[in-house]
């Protein structure tokens, strides 16, 4: 997965179909591969990730163990006091303080929360690229992945039992999410006679109007995250129009997490890992990985 993601990208952002679908686990797996290969990477996160438990629901979350040489962008309030980091610069403000760019000198465990906005995240990734020579890995959020649209970054979609109680449901959610995130870029050579440009989000009302008035048109949104419709309505629209975006995303793989975050009837619930990874690969048409069980499909 590491090689696939970084074959043509200098940065990789991991986003999830829901909370607790193994997003940070996927992110850590990428880091671990880089560490084992002796590659100095740069890491950051959208939102408060890497803490011992999730700030919202208290679920346990993996902590980040950073190797010497790693570049990191994190809020000033989260810079560990020991072992000391080498502070290289500062950037956008966040709720936890200024975003600080630092290099790990001695191995350390820390929380990472990067800048809160898409534009600040773009600037942060670019600064991390400039500060080091290795890839930039981002523990991201699907609603803020717009910052990477149109760039050469790779996106990995984490999905799992938290987004559906059956393998079929998890695969369906993954497929729909991938369908939205992989809306192709504009192709002026092959656009239809009528081109409808949607400013801002494409919502349910826009979709109904397009279905009524603009069948067969090329419909253009700014980036895939602007598509706010789901399910059958999205499917109908995609079938009826030539749906495009100005700045496409490059989604390269999915990961699966078979464990449900909550107990079901008092017991741990888990989908069949191998069947899940195969179903998600089949439904999305992308390579799928279970980085915990070391499975691929």
């Amino acid at each position: 997965m590491y090689s696939l993601a970084l074959a043509h990208a200098a940065s990789v952002i991991v986003v999830g179909t829901a909370k607790n679908v193994g997003k940070t686990t996927t992110f850590n797996a990428l880091r671990a591969v880089a560490m084992r290969r002796g590659i100095a990477i740069a890491v950051t996160s959208i939102g408060r990730d890497g803490e011992a438990s999730d700030a919202l629901d208290g679920e346990p979350k993996p902590r980040l163990r950073l190797a010497p040489g790693t570049l990191v962008a994190l809020a000033a309030g989260l810079v560990p006091r020991t072992p000391a980091l080498a502070i290289l610069g500062s950037g956008a403000e966040s709720a936890l303080g200024t975003t600080v760019f630092a290099r790990v000198v001695l191995p350390t465990m820390c929380e990472i929360a990067g800048p809160p906005t898409a534009s600040a995240m773009r600037a942060t990734i670019d600064r991390l690229r400039a500060l080091g020579s290795g890839p930039v890995l981002v523990d991201g959020a699907i609603d803020r992945v717009a910052a990477l649209a149109g760039g050469d970054d790779a996106v990995i979609l984490a999905t799992g039992a938290a987004s559906g109680s059956t393998i079929a449901r998890v695969a369906a959610v993954a497929a729909e999410t991938i369908a939205r995130l992989t809306i192709p870029g504009r192709d002026p050579q092959h656009e239809r006679a009528r081109v409808v440009r949607i400013a801002g989000a494409l919502d349910g009302r826009d979709a109904e109007e397009l279905l009524a008035d603009a069948r067969d048109a090329t419909v253009v949104v700014e980036d895939p995250t602007r598509i706010a419709i789901r399910g059958a309505l999205f499917d109908r629209l995609r079938a009826a129009v030539d749906l495009r975006c100005e700045r496409p995303l490059r989604v390269v793989a999915c990961t699966t997490s078979p464990r449900h975050p909550e107990l079901v009837e008092g017991r741990e619930a888990m989908l069949a890992p191998r069947a899940l990874v195969e179903a998600v690969a089949r439904a999305t048409g992308l390579p799928a990985f279970d980085v915990v069980a070391d499975l691929a499909a």
Binding site: T25, N28, A29, A32, V33, R36, P62, R63, R65, P273, R274, D290, V291, V292, A293, D294
Partner: peptide, 15 residues
Amino acid sequence: TGIDAVGDEFVVLRD
């Protein structure tokens, strides 16, 4: 097990 334990945790399927 044949498993590459890259992360902090890993899963071993009984199969």
